[in-house]
Design a protein around this nucleic acid. Sequence first.
DNA 1: AATTCAGACAACCGCTGCTGC
DNA 2: TGCAGCAGCGGTTGTCTGAAT
Length: 277
Amino acid sequence: MKKGPWTPEEDELLANYVKRREGEGLWRTLPKRAGLLRCGKSCRLRWMNYLRPSVKRGRIAPDEEDLILRLHRLLGNRWALIAGRIPGRTDNEIKNYWNSHLSKKPINQGIDPRTHKPVDTSPNPNSSGTYAIQTQASTLTLFPKKPRPIFSGSQPVNGYNLDLDRNPLVDNSHKNLKNSDLLMTNLESGHENSSNEEDDMEFCNGETFSSFLNFLINENEFTDPQQPNVISPSILSQHVTSSMQTFNLGTVWEAAPTSTVAALEDEQEGLDNLLPD
DNA sequence: AATTCAGACAACCGCTGCTGC
DNA sequence: TGCAGCAGCGGTTGTCTGAAT
């Protein structure tokens, strides 16, 4: 089994085979059929990241860079999802570009590239829990009208512990969702837990998710002009309400009342435990 | 000219989730 | 319900190339 860089001859063998024969898929048996001394995984990666006709070569344009930054702020290191929004770019390419270029930009601006929030190493006695609001859109406060547990156990998202049983951002008495990642996950999956017979929720499809993501990318609509790094709950709740109408999200989501957001801001204690080392 | 170093990118590896049996 | 096979994902490592010394 050969490893390392691909030769032009190997590229030609693989590309010709995929184009002329069976297309993508059946990667495990493809190398033997195509006459390649590579593992199927390597063939798939080479095709997806380099040989596929739709792959765009060349430098990342400024508008693409801006889009990557915005999507990363929303989605974290979910490179495949980000790549899906940028035509011709692969997850590997975006990941590499982020690690070698973009991750340094926020640092230079005093922003943590992982959380997209200001780096503040000094203790802040006046933080009063607003840290929760400043941890990017991940604190977007949304929950179903008919609350129910969807996730259990620990699930690190963007470097934060989202253990629903211990996470002070989660109102466990109501099992409300208070994280856009959870929202995203449910939007993407179409919500697999909707088999409950008393379930009258309508979960959106991928197209709706795509539209909703487009909507979220326009970050300026969510931010307070006086605090550009802070998602404004009031502005957000207005837009979430409108998004329910615009994207036909049905009765699934409603914005948290302002009082809930205020209550969150009082839950400073224990937040430090959520921070990554 | 030779060597070292850092950046960019390609490729690998381990893991997860999905699907079919 | 459990298992195996598979595709896909994200973190990590390897390789190449050009600049600096």
